[in-house]
Amino acid sequence: MKYTEEHEWLRAEGDAYVVGITEHATTQLGDLVFVELPEVGATVSADDEIVVIESVKAASDIMAPVDGEITEVNTDLADDPSLANSDPLGKGWFFKIKPSDASQLDGLLDEAAYNALIG
């Protein structure tokens, strides 16, 4: 598992990565009520704001963790945003991305570094 400083997690699945947000992030955000996902097939660049999420409190963005192509999105999450709160590492995933430059993964955080980040 890899992490970003923006509280996303990435889990390898074939030649793509499943991306979601961490439990720390969902706890901070509160109950999610709206998720707008990117288009499947979209080519995105790292740090592009590709997902809009709204909690009961406020709107925020989720950025692409690396350059790549969106290969799948979690339509169940769009229908029921609370999945991100109840199962952030499982049913609450957001999208799958196929990196165009796998070396960008090396720049992400490992679990120890992420845990140190959130203290």
Partner: peptide
């Protein structure tokens, strides 16, 4: 602003 239960609950 909220307790551990969360705004929704």
């Amino acid at each position: 602003v909220q307790y551990p239960m969360g705004v929704m609950k």
